[in-house]
Design a protein around this nucleic acid. Structure first.
Lengths: 214, 214
DNA sequence: GTCTATACTCTGATAGAC
DNA sequence: GTCTATCAGAGTATAGAC
């Protein structure tokens, strides 16, 4: 579910509500959630500070919407690639390529949404449940890979955290001038090298992923 | 340079200044830097809020000291293992095991020091230079590994970022109930699997690292 | 070094006119 | 939905007595 699909092509046509989400995500990414005031956001959008409350109940509600959108799109993607079948290696490779490409093309900047600063906000209970769903889906994929001897038999939670950390690092790296086009395959390659029992077969995984349409 | 070496054994004997650093690091880790007030820190230490300014010029100065201590210890460790010689694989394995063990045993909680929220503070210029030194040392190690055919020839900066991300993730994981004793070898193993041309030789790397004294 | 008292700024959020 | 006006609270930091 690429964000572009539900938004007008030019920024000038975006709704005020979407603009608030967009500018808030960018400011959060560079100054942190608490380091960004509602006045900062509204100045970037071009409205006065109290007008924000016509669109959101609170500042936390902005973070909540950004986070739940991102989590839902990740869960959807994991489900989509799981339905396609194929070996867990191919499934994971396709998901990583898709996720990182999506993150880097998305105008919303989601670099800090998964920091404690935001995740620990008391208002974000619903998001933490969604996060559990996402984690469970990704762990299930890794577990399938271990059972089928595709992946090494290390602690599943540790492996899932490692995968998440590499996805987030690819997002952050692109924001610091790294060549964007390379990131998805680089990150997917490194993850699969770390997890696969026989990393020498990565080229075959890449080929099968491409023939499966990605 | 383990922190225990320069501190009294029991918390009751710590200086107020060290206690401020300790409690601040813990509060930063769970609420973020901006989410932690100087009052919060002083309450945890057992002094009144203005007394903090007898020890630090500002709240930022606390983050600066925590960060520069951590960076200096990392740089020292990288230099130490580089001086010991051995293959880049063994050198990286030894560094990772040492670094993660140190992070997990250290009473100071450094989980969020490397977030933009803190790194972007204008008062932390000196730390950013130290961070460059650390990054250069780690990149040099990776570059040596690539030249010597130990490691795969992917983008060095991307690989260094991946290594950093996995170190930080091991730190965060341990704070959420993961079995602490396993983290150093798990993380070092995953990193070396990702980087080594022949991941099958990891057992040999581990053996050589242990005979080198770690 | 620690305290009390306080200054001053910034922040999130509400009220009510248009 | 956007505005002006405004508030109440929390924040960092300083002054000065002990």
């Amino acid at each position: 579910m690429p964000t572009e699909g539900k938004l007008p092509a030019t920024a000038a046509q975006w709704s005020t509500r979407e603009l608030i989400l967009l500018e808030a995500s960018r400011l959060f990414a560079t100054r942190g959630f608490r380091g960004t005031s509602t006045r900062d956001i509204c100045t970037a959008v071009g409205i006065r500070q109290p007008s924000l409350y016509s669109h959101f109940l609170s500042k936390q509600a902005i973070a909540q919407e950004l986070l739940s959108r991102d989590l839902n799109s990740g869960i959807e993607a994991l489900d989509r690639f799981a339905r396609d079948g194929g070996s867990p290696s191919v499934e994971l490779y396709r998901y990583l390529r898709w996720e990182i490409t999506y993150d880097l093309e998305d105008p919303f900047d989601k670099r800090v949404l998964y920091n404690v600063e935001i995740l620990a906000l008391p208002e974000l209970d619903g998001c933490r449940e969604l996060l559990d769903v996402y984690n469970n889906r990704l762990e299930a994929l890794i577990r399938r890979g271990i059972r089928g001897k595709d992946f090494i038999a290390l602690d599943v939670i540790f492996l899932r955290r490692t995968v998440d950390a590499i996805i987030l690092e690819a997002m952050r790296g692109s924001a610091e001038g790294a060549p964007i086009a390379d990131q998805p395959d680089l990150a997917a390659t490194v993850v699969l090298r770390a997890l696969m029992q026989t990393p020498g077969e990565i080229d075959s995984v890449r080929a099968r992923a491409h023939s499966a349409g990605l």
